[in-house]
Amino acid sequence: YFQGQLNAMAHQIQEMFPQVPYHLVLQDLQLTRSVEITTDNILEGRI
């Protein structure tokens, strides 16, 4: 994955969860590489 793709995914998640800091979303995406998994992590309070 290149950074631009991760940034696009992070923006997509931020639209759904504007209360979660962008850098935390991006940090999780770098591990998961998945909008779905990061979204689940937010919903389950891991982020």
Rank of each mutant, 00 (worst) to 15 (best):
R33Y: 13
E36N: 08
L29H: 00
A8F: 13
Q14P: 00
I37A: 09
N41R: 09
T32E: 01
P18G: 04
L26M: 09
H11M: 14
L31H: 11
V35F: 09
M16W: 08
E15Y: 12
I47K: 01
N7T: 13
L6W: 10
Q27L: 12
Q27K: 11
Q27C: 11
G45D: 04
G45K: 06
E15Q: 14
E44W: 13
A10L: 09
F17L: 02
Y22F: 13
G4W: 15
P18K: 06
R33L: 14
G4T: 11
V35L: 10
I47E: 01
V35R: 08
Q5Y: 13
V20G: 01
H23E: 11
E36V: 09
H11T: 10
R33V: 06
E36W: 10
M9P: 01
L43G: 03
F17W: 05
P18D: 03
Q12Y: 13
H23N: 10
D40N: 15
N41M: 02
L24G: 02
E15W: 10
D40A: 15
L43S: 07
E36M: 10
S34L: 03
L6N: 02
T38S: 03
Q12F: 13
I42K: 00
D28F: 07
E44V: 09
Q19V: 05
E36Y: 10
V35M: 10
S34N: 08
Y22C: 08
Q30S: 10
L31M: 12
Y22P: 05
M9K: 05
A8E: 12
R33N: 11
Q5I: 12
L29A: 01
I37N: 06
D28W: 08
D28I: 06
Q27T: 08
E44S: 15
V25A: 04
F2V: 11
I13Q: 00
Y22G: 04
I13Y: 01
E15G: 09
D28A: 05
N41F: 04
V35K: 09
L43C: 07
T38M: 03
V35T: 06
P18H: 03
N41V: 04
D40C: 15
D40L: 15
M9C: 08
R46F: 06
R46Y: 06
Q30D: 06
Q12S: 09
Q14D: 02
Q30R: 13
G4I: 14
L31S: 09
L24V: 09
V35H: 04
Y22E: 04
P18E: 03
V20H: 03
Q14R: 12
